[in-house]
């Protein structure tokens, strides 16, 4: 009698623990997927998803995957975005220096017509590569909300930093240094 009672008790404990664990698991799943779902792909330490875009004014395409081994800065911008206008000159200023050290700056433009981009480049005298994302697919892929947003990717292809809003010259310099290959 005593032994069977003990066994019963043990069985009950195992049953209750298992039920509670399963239910706790479901709850954690629900809460995590409802709260954290959106930033799952684009986060520090995650692999930057691949894309392919045309360089503005050429037929040349750029594949992010081909740039592995180099540091890559992605800057999402548009001509109708005021803070973007402030930070473009800083990128122009630092582009040559970092390109020699193996860092590529890719400014991904979200406008829908070529002419506004062309006029903007003329006005600001920009020479570094501009990619066109007319359909906004790459913007969606990187879950870009407000622009400008910059993403810094190290030579291993992992996202090191994601910056929302305009950068200052010194901050930009600091982030670019972080992703410079050794």
């Amino acid at each position: 009698m005593k032994e069977s009672t003990l066994k019963k008790k043990q069985k009950r404990l195992i049953f209750r623990s298992a039920m509670l664990l399963v239910m706790a698991g479901l709850v954690v799943f629900a809460v995590v997927s409802s709260l954290g779902g959106e930033d799952a792909v684009i986060a520090k330490g995650e692999k930057a998803p691949n894309f392919q875009l045309k360089k503005f004014g050429t037929d040349e395409t750029v594949d992010l995957r081909d740039l592995e081994g180099k540091g890559v800065m992605l800057n999402f911008w548009a001509t109708y975005c005021e803070p973007c206008k402030d930070e473009m000159p800083y990128m122009e200023e630092l582009y040559d220096k970092y390109e020699n050290q193996g860092v590529e700056i890719l400014a991904i433009n979200l406008d829908s017509t070529d002419i506004v981009v062309e006029r903007f480049l003329q006005e600001y005298g920009l020479t570094f590569p501009i990619l066109r994302d007319e359909s906004g697919q790459v913007m969606d892929l990187y879950q870009i909300g407000p622009i400008p947003t910059s993403i810094f990717i190290n030579p291993e292809g992992e996202i090191v930093e994601q910056v929302r809003g305009a950068l200052t010259l010194s901050k930009l310099d600091g982030y670019l240094q972080q992703i410079t290959p050794e």
Binding site: A78, T79, Y80, S112, T113, V116, R119
Partner: peptide, 19 residues
């Protein structure tokens, strides 16, 4: 010379607020 898809005047200069 310039195209503004959705123009507004900002400090006396035309700017576009969207594409």
């Amino acid at each position: 010379e310039n195209y503004y898809p959705e123009y507004e005047m900002n400090d006396g200069r035309p700017v576009s607020v969207s594409k």
